[in-house]
Design a binder for these strands. Sequence first.
DNA 1: ATGTCCCTTATAAAGGGA
Length: 289
Amino acid sequence: MPLVRLATWNVNSAKIRLPRLLPWLDQRAPDVVCLQETKASDAEWSETYDAELRERGYEVAHYGQGRWNGVALLSRVGLDDVERGLPGEPRFPADDSAPEARALSATCGGLRVTSVYVPNGRTPDDPHYAYKLRWLDALHAMVSDGPTSSSVVAGDMNIAPTDADVWDPSLFVDSTHVTPAERKALESLTGLGLHDVVRDRWPGERVFSYWDYRAGRFHQDQGMRIDLVLVGDDAVGRVRAAWIDRQARKGSGPSDHAPVMVDLDEAPDGDIGPVVPPPTTPAKLPHLG
DNA sequence: ATGTCCCTTATAAAGGGA
């Protein structure tokens, strides 16, 4: 397998974001893309977006009901054994209500990739917060039951792993995204051997992936790092670069999230495919771009 | 710090969600 570029991006509506998504695919040329908050139904997706993506060489899977949520996977290195949702996932408001489209898995280039849109939680005393924790339990169960070492979990975790991932922790005391229970749930996931490769690569840097649209947050770099690429043991040694594509948050009509990018070197064994030149090292840190 | 953007509808103004 040649070098593989993984990306995850909460696009905040596929319909609105298409004019940003397509050029971004052309420019960044990711091989595997996890999308969240497509806010599209499967019917709308197949009628409106599928062809444009397939023209670009991607196999495509989408899971969405429209209006809210919605996740997708694009891959140019295979897209097999697609699985919608999580086994035993909780539902909201009741366990007999329809599941929300928040997880989509497929095998791409030998990796078991899951695109996730973790519930927001709203506030710690809200029923949505308990639902978030139960949903994270189901995610943990799926990863631990599966081929953990070849797993990649990527998406909008709606959790800032540490206070370093929040622009001003004093403003988020007792807020969702930073509570010990959420962080513990995330740690139990990384405890399975899933590595937060952007933080590993930039241990002391101010790196955010989300900036509220309001109050000029992006302009002041007042954001949070809640979009993660978690890489299992098989691929973590192949990580050649990991960064946040801050450029995609700029300009007109951006999502409030930036894509997270990870380049994997060719697998050490077997057919390594055509020889490719090393990726260009950015002159500046990409996330400061 | 409640200032934006995106969805939807008993739609052209307003409510819900992030």
